[in-house]
Computed example of a mutant assay.
Amino acid sequence: MRATDLSELAAFDAVARHRNFRRAGAERGVTASAISHAVSNLEARVGIRLLNRTTRSVSLTEAGAMLLSQLSPAFGEIGSALDALNQYRDTPFGKVRINAPNSIARFVFGPVMGPLLANNPNLELEIVATDRLVDIVKEGFDAGIRLGESLRDGMTAVKIKPRLRLAVVGSPAYFARYPVPRTPTDLKEHVCIRNIHPSGRAYPWEFSRAGNIIEFEPTGPLSLDDQELMVEAAMSGVALAYVWEDRARSHLANGELVECLASWCAPEDWLYVYYPTRKHISAGLRAVVEALRV
C-alpha cells in the first residue's frame, strides 16, 4: 500500500469518527480542506461514495460504515505496533489528548504537569478544559476526567487525586448584613448564586450529614457557570457562593471569604481518569494515568 493510500484512509477514519472535517483536521494536524481533499481522492480511487455531506452535517454511507468497521481494528493494531517501539526509547513518545472539566482541571493537572513532562520529554500533552459534557470518543480524546457518578458504561476508570469538596462561602461584609446560616434550610433567607451548567440548566446545592441529604435550589438574581466569577461575586459581598473549597482556599486563608455549613459539606465522589475499555492504551496515556492515580 502506498503512503498516500494510508494517509487517505486515516483522513476518512478521522472524519467518520468525528462526523466533522474541522475536528478531524485538528486531530490530524492539517486543515479541514486538506482532510476533505484526501477523502475525495479516496472516494474517487475506490469509485464509491463513503460520506454524505451537507452544509451542516456529515454521515456515513452504507459503504462508508462497512469500511470504518474494518479500519478501526486495523488502525488499533497499527497504534499498538507503533507504541511497542516505546520499549526501545527511554520515555513514552507522542501526543495524549485529555478532556477535563474547566472547574477542576487546575486541581488535577496543576501539581503533575511539570514533573510529568520533565520525566517524559518526548510526551506531548494536550488538555482541553471545558464544563461542557464531552463525548471523548466522538471528539477524538484519548481520555477524560470526571466524577465517578457521571461515568458511562464501556469505560475503564482509574481513581485519581485529589478528592474535592464543595464549600459555601461569603464575605465578611455579607455576613455583617446577614446571620451566618447554621443549617441548609437557613439558606432560604439568604442571597445565593445559582450554579448553572454551560447549557444554562441549573443544578442544586447538595448537603449531607449523618445520613440526612438536603438539596437546595437557589433563587437568587445571579446565575453563573464559572467558579472564578462565583468567587469574585462572593468577595464583593453580593451573595453566597457554592464552589470547590480549593478554588476559594487562598481567600479563606486571608479572610476575604468566610466558610459556613462546613459540617454539611462532605467530600465529593472520587475523580477518575477514564478511557474506552476497548481502546488501545498508548505508553503516553499510561504515563499520564500513573502520574494522576491515587
Rank of each mutant, 00 (worst) to 15 (best):
M1N: 09
R2D: 13
D5I: 14
L6N: 02
S7G: 13
E8N: 14
E8Y: 03
L9A: 00
A11I: 05
F12C: 01
A14G: 06
H18R: 15
F21Y: 15
A24Y: 01
G25I: 00
G25Y: 06
E27N: 09
V30K: 05
A32W: 11
A32K: 14
A32I: 06
S33V: 14
I35L: 10
V39E: 04
L42D: 02
R45N: 02
V46K: 02
R49N: 11
R53A: 01
T55N: 13
T55S: 13
T55F: 08
L60G: 00
E62C: 07
A63K: 08
G64C: 04
A65M: 08
Q70R: 15
L71F: 04
P73C: 09
P73M: 08
A74K: 03
G76D: 12
I78N: 00
S80A: 15
Y88R: 13
D90F: 07
G94H: 08
G94C: 02
I98M: 00
A100L: 07
P101V: 09
P101L: 04
N102W: 11
V108L: 05
V112I: 15
P115L: 08
P115A: 08
L117A: 08
L117E: 05
L117F: 03
L117G: 00
P121G: 10
P121K: 09
N122M: 14
E124F: 12
L125S: 07
V128L: 13
A129K: 10
L133E: 14
L133A: 14
D135F: 04
V137Y: 10
V137N: 10
K138R: 15
G140F: 00
F141N: 07
A143M: 06
I145Q: 05
I145E: 02
L147R: 09
R152K: 13
R152W: 08
D153M: 07
G154H: 01
V158Q: 09
I160R: 02
I160T: 03
K161H: 13
R163C: 02
R163D: 07
V168H: 00
V169S: 08
V169I: 11
G170L: 08
G170I: 03
F175H: 07
F175S: 04
F175K: 01
R177M: 11
T185V: 12
I193A: 07
S199E: 04
A202W: 06
A202P: 09
E206H: 11
S208L: 07
N212D: 13
I214T: 11
E215C: 09
E217R: 14
T219F: 09
S223R: 13
L224I: 08
L229C: 05
A234E: 06
S236P: 00
L240F: 06
W244G: 04
E245G: 01
E245N: 10
D246R: 14
R247C: 06
R249W: 04
L252N: 06
N254I: 03
N254Q: 12
G255M: 07
L257Q: 00
W264G: 02
W264V: 04
W264R: 05
P276C: 05
T277S: 15
R278W: 12
K279D: 10
G284N: 02
L285S: 00
A291S: 12
V294F: 10
